[in-house]
Each structure stands twice: as structure tokens, then as C-alpha cells.
Design a protein around this nucleic acid. Structure first.
Lengths: 169, 169
DNA sequence: CAATCAATAGTCCAGAATAGACTGTCTAAG
DNA sequence: CTTAGACAGTCTATTCTGGACTATTGATTG
């Protein structure tokens, strides 16, 4: 309960994942992130330990702690957390994709695009293959939202692959 | 000189912009960012005040301070800064685009894509128009790297516009 | 000329995020 | 029974973020 905290995207990621899992430890969250979300929103694993605690003290999550062994903390959504998540999901955003592309930054400042392109083509090709693979394996049974964001990832990777290929000669 | 500091992307942005300008105040840098780079790499203006100071104490920039009025600080590249920038530019990166897209994050967690799409189509359409405008106005005389990253921005915006349009019905 | 307004320019701070080293716990194989 | 590797969590220093706040300058107008 109590202290008001600022809810950041990180907060909603934690709330969303906890909701999806029903109950989860930070380590569970870490694995969930790695398998999905991490592909398009990078997170430090340390945050998956600190953020749930923040949310728990503020009343958005309920915490149950094991009394022996690893003394893991298990989190579930509290009513307040469910409400906050619902609200956030319902509110559309006009905010644009923010991208941070080191290679592009170097190009901007005059780095040689051809040299840059070789590495980038390779990296994007791998990423694209990975996504397409997931889509082929699991595509049909993915929740629609997850599937949609995977599609978006595939589109984006195709675009980048295309862009860099054209500069690779 | 002296104290070793960690050079982050922010550092190289400052070094790169100072090099391009010859000499610049933080406020100049802020304007340069707004007009170009800011479109694909967001920065807090406060950092354009603190980062140059960090770089100056570490010997990468030379600082000249006005003695009256606003007491502006003017920075130029020091030899060490020029070296660091060259080195960074020469080294290709395999790092991928990191994207943070709030709308996509919401979709991932189950938000209604149709509602999301309306706002996003609008926002991306505007951004795309803005880029294409710059390209038409200034395209020919842009430095090649700047032009290339502008092209990348246009491609990316087209991709997003396309993606969201398809879900807008 | 003084008042005032907008644009210009810079400072500050609390809190959040990042990088990455470090420490424990558990299980299975040799 | 020991040890390697996977599993799970903690910690710290530094950087970054959002946003409020202050101060200077130049242009307008009454």
C-alpha cells in the first residue's frame, strides 16, 4: 500500500508479465523476458529484482516469500496492480518508436557505411531468422498480441536487412 | 587530461557534434541535436551541459569560458577527443537496433491494436512527412552520413506506417 | 525611456536505469 | 563426496531521465 511511486514502462512490463504468469519469481520474469519481450525491449535482469519490490511496497503486487532454502520471492498481482495495468493498456499512445542504433549513429558522424554494413547484414539476418523460426514453430498458438509484436519485429528486421544490404555492395 | 572516464554513446555524440561545429556551446549542441540526430537518438538537454564538462576534465575537449554576461562555455575538440572519435568511428559494430515502442509494448500485453493504430498511423505519417520534407529541401547538400541516416529514418517510418495502417481498418 | 514579454541559455535534483562484478544454492555425474 | 554447471539473487558506481527552476538578452510598445 501507500507511497505513491512513478509507474514507468518497466513497471508495466513487470505487472504484465506477472499477470500472464499468475505468480512469478524475478527469475521467472527474467526467463519470460528473454524468451519474448527482450527481443524488442531490453531490460537489465537486476531490475526484475528491484522493480517488483518497489511495486510490492506500493501495493501493486503481493509478495510471498519462501521461508527456507533460496527464500525466493513470489509475486502476484494485487487489485491495485490489475487496475493500473488495465488502465495503461486501455490508453493509446501517440509516442513513436524510439530507436537507438549504434551503427546508424556512426554513419551519421561519417563512418564508412560499407564497413559497417557487413557486420550489420549478418546480425540482422540472424535476428530475422530467429524471429521467423519462432513464428513458424509457435506462431499459431501465440496470444494475438504477442504474435502481432513478433510480426512487427520481423517487419522491422526485414527493413534493416534491406537497408544494410543495399550499402554492402 | 587525467582521470579516465567511460565513453558512452552520449560522449561520442558530443564529440561528433563539436567536431562538426568546430566550436560549440551546449546550447548550440542542443540545437544541432534537435535538428538532426534527435530524430533517432533522444537526449536530455541537461546532458549536453554535463557531458562536455566530463569530457573536458578528462582531456577530450578544450573549454573556453566567457568572462562576462552568460559566461557561456565554448568547447572544441582536443587531440585526445579527435583520436577517440576517429577510433570509435572506425570500429564497426554488430550491435542491433534497439527499439522501444510503447504502442508495441501495450499490444504485446493485450491492448487493442485497432485503437492503438489510429494514433500511431497519425504520428508516423507526420514524422515521415517531416523527414521527406527535409530530404526534399536539403537532401542534396547534406553530408553523406547525415543523408544516409535520414534515408534510414524514412525507411523505418514507412515500415511502421505500413504496419499500423494494416491494423487500423 | 521603462516595462514587459518572448526567446535564449543554463542549472539543479530526485529518482530510475545501466553495466557488470559478485555471491550463494542446488543437482547430477564421476 | 566433490565438483561443475545451471540456477538464483545481490550489490555498487555511474549514467540517464524528467522536469522544475533561474537568469540573461533582445525586441516591442506605451
Amino acid at each position: 500500500m501507500s507511497s505513491e511511486i512513478r509507474l514507468t514502462p518497466t513497471s508495466f512490463i513487470v505487472l504484465g508479465l506477472v499477470e500472464a504468469a499468475g505468480e512469478a519469481t524475478p527469475y521467472d520474469l527474467k526467463n519470460m523476458v528473454g524468451a519474448s519481450l527482450g527481443n524488442f525491449w531490453s531490460l537489465q535482469h537486476a531490475q526484475l529484482y528491484s522493480e517488483p519490490q518497489r511495486l510490492a511496497t506500493a501495493g501493486y503486487l503481493a509478495e510471498r516469500r519462501e521461508t527456507s532454502g533460496r527464500r525466493r520471492r513470489h509475486y502476484r498481482l494485487a487489485a491495485e496492480g490489475k487496475r493500473a495495468l488495465r488502465e495503461w493498456l486501455a490508453e493509446p499512445t501517440a509516442e513513436l518508436t524510439e530507436m537507438r542504433d549504434l551503427a546508424l549513429l556512426k554513419i551519421f558522424f561519417g563512418a564508412n557505411p560499407v564497413e559497417m554494413a557487413a557486420e550489420q547484414v549478418e546480425a540482422h539476418r540472424n535476428k530475422l531468422a530467429e524471429y521467423e523460426d519462432i513464428m513458424k514453430q509457435a506462431g499459431a498458438d501465440l496470444p494475438p498480441g504477442v504474435r502481432l509484436s513478433l510480426e512487427a519485429g520481423i517487419l522491422a528486421e526485414r527493413t534493416w536487412l534491406d537497408f544494410w544490404s543495399r550499402h554492402a555492395e
